[in-house]
Each structure stands twice: as C-alpha cells, then as structure tokens.
Design a protein around this nucleic acid. Sequence first.
DNA 1: GCGGATCAC
DNA 2: TATGGTGATCCGC
Length: 397
Amino acid sequence: QRIEKMMQQKANINEQQLSKAQAQVEKLTTDLERGRDLSRVIVHVDMDAFYAAVEMRDCPDLKDKPMAVGTRSMLSTSNYQARKFGVRAAMPGFIAKKLCPDLVLVPNNFDKYKAVSTDVREIFADYDPHFLSVSLDEAYLDITEHLDQRRLWPDALRTHRLHNPNTGTAGVENQGEGSKISEEVDNVSPLLFEESPSSTPQPCLQDASVCGTSGGVEMFGTGAEEAVREMRFRIQQKTLLTASAGIAPNMMLAKVCSDMNKPNGQYKLPSTQHAVMAFIQDLPVRKVPGIGKVTEKMLGALGVTNCAHLGQEMALLSLLFSETSWHHFLHISLGLGSSHIQRDGERKSMSIERTFGEMSALEEQFSLCREMCQDLAQDLQKEALKVFAFLALSALM
DNA sequence: GCGGATCAC
DNA sequence: TATGGTGATCCGC
C-alpha cells in the first residue's frame, strides 16, 4: 500500500518540480562535500558468529557439527556450517531443523557471553577508551589518537607473545571453523600490559628487528591495518574467538567494511574522496545500516537497488520521502556518516542545554570539562605505566 | 505527547 | 507444538 501511494505521488510530479528539486539537491551536495571529514580512523569490530563460537569453544563435540544457539522458536545465531543449510539468526529453530535435520540446538548462555564480552572490551579500551558498544559482540572505535601515539612507540609495545603451548608456531590466523583450538584459556597473555593478574610479563623478547611471527612472538606495525590486526590477534589470544573489522573514515562505512572479509578478516577503505565514492557505487542499499526490508522494497519500486542509483535519483527521492529520510539517502549516496563516535549521554545533555538556556549551558561546559580532565588523567596514567614497563624490560635485557 | 512503523542487535 | 524482546528513531495525528 505504501508503494502504491508512493507511485501515485510519483505520477503527479512534473518536470519543473523535478528540476527545482535537482537544484536543491545539488546545492546541498556541494555543502556536504565541503564538510566531508576524512581525518578520522573509525573501526567497527564484530565477533564472528559470537554466541555460536563461544559454545563451540567450550564444547569440542560441537566443533565439526552444524549448530545454532537459541530455542525451537527463535535462534540467536548459527555457526558457519549451519549457514550452509540456510540456517540464520532470527529464524525459528523448528524451521531450521527442517532445513538441516542434524542441526544441534544449544540454549542461550547470556551470562557467559557477557563475561567474554567484558574480556574483549578490555582490549578495545586500549585502542579507544571512549569506544562505543553496539551489543555484546560489536563496537565502534576511533583509533585516530591511538595511531598518533603508536607511531612513537618502540617495537616492544607492539610485540605480543603467541599463545600456542603445543606447537609454538603460527597458525593462529586460521583458527576458524574446522581447525582445532586448544582448550586452555589461561596463560594467553600477550607479552606486555595484559591486565589479567595471572600474567607476569617475562623477559623473553627476542630479536626486536624481526617482524612478523618468530619464536612465539608476533610484532605489529604502526599503521591502522596493523593496529587492527594486532587488536584482533589479542582478542583471539585472550578468548580463542575470532573477530572481523572494518576501517574507514566514518561509522557508516566502517560498519559496511567489517562485513567485507568476514569471518576472521578485515578491510580498510582508504581515506580519500575518490576511494569512498568508488566503494559506494556498487553497494546494495540493503547493506547500509538504517536501510531495512521495507525501505529496500520502497526504493526497489523506484529502480534503486545500489548506492549509485541512490545518487542518480536524489531529486525524485527528495519529492517522495520526508526531509530526514532523503537527507539520510543523500548522505549515504555520498559515503558520508558520523566521523566522531558519541558516547552515550553526551548528545542528550546537549539537547537539554538548548532547552534550558544559558545557566545550564555553563554547567554543561563545566561537566564536559571535568569529564575531559578525568579522561586525560586516565590516559596519562596508562601511558606512564607502559613507559615504566618498557624501561623495566629494557633493564632486564 | 502518543502510538504505529521501521530498524538493529 | 512452535516465528523474540528491547530500545531508538521517525512520522502522522
């Protein structure tokens, strides 16, 4: 019905209205283009088949079987073997059983997922203390500042011990489905700065000039991709689970990018206008966060299926959709998105500021100031700790 | 301001 | 046998 109504509206649009709309879209486009921010490095991290992966880790019998987590009426997620049968998250378990009769159903263990999530978030905090959790298995990070610092770091701070008690060789990168994963969970600390009390940094740093895997030690570079590779490596060492990540200049793009090399992979979109536009063109609109089933169908009725179409039809879309909707579409078609991650609360108090006027504005500024000071103090403390540990290590060598 | 629709996990 | 629970946002009234 909504599509019918829309098509009717479309039939009543004349050339004059369309060209007027086109002019308006073009003006807004140049304004938006002027404000494009490519200076930030945003990362979206997503644990692979999270609940299913946790259950497989804790029950080796499940490892080579198609399985799903949930009930007979609703699945939370499934492992990759089950996905081959079409078994997906948000599907009723009894239907999944029809698609895949051998499917093993495991009930939700939320307390366990929460505990694992806490472990992963401790690692996130090392790269962005203000990271934003979307759910137990997903988060956005702004690693711009981390990278600035990281460039000044000595190799030791980017070096992590390989936890692989049996073989002592590489192979960690490929621990997806099918391969055996050690059941030991403790003693998985990287070489330095692991928060868990069980870890006592041992002075077994080998030839620091060796890059990559060597003698149970893995060293990472200073760039964004290397930093994210390191973060995923540490997640795997600590939890025995894999994660995927996307690196891009804003949240919308980072989210899409994290899907590109899933599972256990990552993708970096270069921070140039050209690369962003090229990336966006072929992207199906449904892949964009915020565009769901309904919007996809509405756009589909207008012949819009990818983001290039979105850009081409903006004038029409501006006449058929609400202002917030077509503004959203325009942002997407230009590859624009939020380039700074807002912590919960900050935005809300900003709107209170507007409502309450001058006095509240001052208080707001004050509390914001205080918050920043606290953050600074925290960062400083962390950095100091790292330098201290490094010096101690150097002395030992 | 409220309820319905959409979207995400 | 059997198709979730929750929160956010937008829109129209």
